[in-house]
Design a binder for these strands. Structure first.
Length: 423
RNA sequence: GCCCAGGUAGUCUAGCGGUAAGGCGACGGUCUCGAAAACCGUUUCUUCUUUGGGAGAGCGCAGGUUCAAAUCCUGCCCUGGGCGCCA
């Protein structure tokens, strides 16, 4: 959420931000109108309440002295009915204002390039070189099925389209990656946490998933949402709190759940886009003046996983048209997928500045008073997509897949995945 | 799911119809060569402002009763304890 005072005092800054995000600015006009009306009624209401407080004290005093209070009480009854009217109006305007404020996206950082869509995202760096195959590389879904480590039919049978069962070395590889990532991030100084993935509405609003993206979320019958990313439970660990010791670095593995509404027809084969997937997340709470430096470091911490796995990747700086709702700046890390001859998103590292902190009310103390922290997060990494990258980049002509060296200790020293490894 | 006991400012606690009290912590000031102690002040949100400050809100959340609600009433949420059920 933005600072209402910023919208009030510099509406053009907000309008420009919306325009750069390819969004309409109409909301701002009605917001300013409601804000004006709200403050007018607030002033009138406060004046009447001041009077009520004064008279109420007089009545208390008169009663103590056993004097007549009837005329005062009658006077108050008139004031009270007007206060009630005004309070209703104030509440109404305030909720309208709040409703709009929750739907205004963050203002992009000055280092976020202006652009229309993903084609305008500048490449920041390219690391590693795509392997040159001496044979025709197979897509991961074919490799997975041939090795009997990915079972799409069984996933569809027990759940539906967009769910996959991992078997044997596939299941072990997924688990190994989770442990490997958590270990690396722990070494980098992040505290490991393991949070719930059923989340209440308040927390979902705190990080910005609600109210705007409700249709992308799974809602359980008793009002809980399934976490679409560990960002939600982990960032909200400090909801409504003061953080006494900054910075705080956390890492968490969770399952993530997304309805992928409106994404039908994209990545229908394989495990790139699933309704349920695993992710290891990095979350930082920092002082405002360090947040951009911390974003660089966080991105490098996520990249470290790809470097250790020896997977080629690149980093792009998302332009205003491609930037997420809550983010001020985002680096996407994209891993090379040989059969698509493309880099595909495997991590998204963002600085939200105080956008989430204001929504979730996460503050720290300064001599000048309480201040909102800056929050950051990034995937370190999406596990399923890492499996895709390993299967495709490490495949051999005979259909087996080499296991990256750093993962072997996590897989009992195994060096490869072959058909007969299945048990 | 049922029965108790609770939820008060950053934290701990008092108040149980009449301006939310006190301890601790943090920050600022006085004192000091410096520090500690002591003493004084501040501590959340909103709004107005002539920048000194004024006003309003705020006692888990939402309503209600009342001239007046932390206090009384209703519903809900959360925490602790007991009972039941249960992997």
């Amino acid at each position: 959420m933005l600072d209402l005072k910023l919208v009030r005092n510099s509406p053009d800054v907000v309008r420009h931000a919306l325009i750069n995000r390819n969004m309409s600015t109409e909301l701002i006009d009605s917001l300013l109108e409601y804000d004006k009306a709200w403050r007018e009624y607030l002033a009138e209401g406060d004046e009447l309440k001041h009077k009520r407080n004064v008279v109420t004290r007089e009545i208390a005093k008169l009663k103590k002295e056993n004097k007549d209070t009837l005329s005062k009480i009658e006077e108050m009854q008139g004031i009270n009915s007007r206060i009630k009217e005004i309070d209703d109006l104030i509440r109404d305007y305030k909720s309208k204002i709040h409703e709009i404020m929750l739907r205004i996206p963050n203002i992009p950082s000055s280092t976020t390039p202006i652009g229309k869509d993903e084609n305008d995202n500048p490449v920041v760096r390219v690391v590693g070189e795509p392997r040159k195959f001496t044979f025709t590389p197979q897509p991961h879904w074919d490799i997975g099925e041939a090795l009997d480590i990915l079972d799409f039919e069984k996933g569809a049978k027990i759940a539906g389209q967009g769910f996959t069962v991992y078997k044997g070395m596939g299941a072990k590889l997924e688990r190994a990656l989770v442990n490997f990532m958590l270990d690396v991030h722990s070494r980098q100084g992040y505290l490991e946490v393991f949070p719930p993935v059923l989340i209440n509405e308040k927390a979902m609003t705190g990080t910005g998933q609600l109210p705007k993206f409700k249709e992308d979320m799974y809602l359980c019958t008793d009002g809980y949402y399934l976490a679409p990313t560990a960002e939600v439970p982990v960032t909200n660990l400090y909801m409504d709190e003061y953080i006494e010791k900054l910075p705080v670095f956390l890492t968490a593995y969770t399952a993530c759940f997304r309805r992928e509404a409106g994404k039908h027809g994209q990545d229908t084969r394989g495990i790139i886009r699933q309704h349920q997937f695993n992710k290891v997340e990095l979350v930082k709470f920092v002082k405002p003046e360090t947040s951009y430096e911390e974003l660089e470091k966080l991105t490098l911490d996520a990249e470290e996983i790809l470097k250790l796995l020896n997977l080629p990747y690149r980093v792009v700086n998302l332009c205003t048209g491609d930037l997420g709702f809550s983010a001020a700046k985002t680096y996407d890390i994209e891993v090379w997928v040989p059969t698509q001859e493309k880099y595909r998103e495997i991590s998204s590292c963002s600085n939200f500045e105080n956008f989430q902190a204001r929504r979730a009310n996460i503050r720290f103390r300064t001599p000048e008073g309480p201040q909102f922290v800056h929050t950051l997060n990034g995937s370190g990494l999406a596990v399923g997509r890492t499996v895709v990258a390993i299967l495709e980049n490490y495949q051999r002509e005979d259909g087996s897949v080499e296991i990256p060296e750093v993962l072997r200790p996590y897989l009992g020293g195994e060096k490869e995945i072959r058909k007969e490894d299945l048990t």
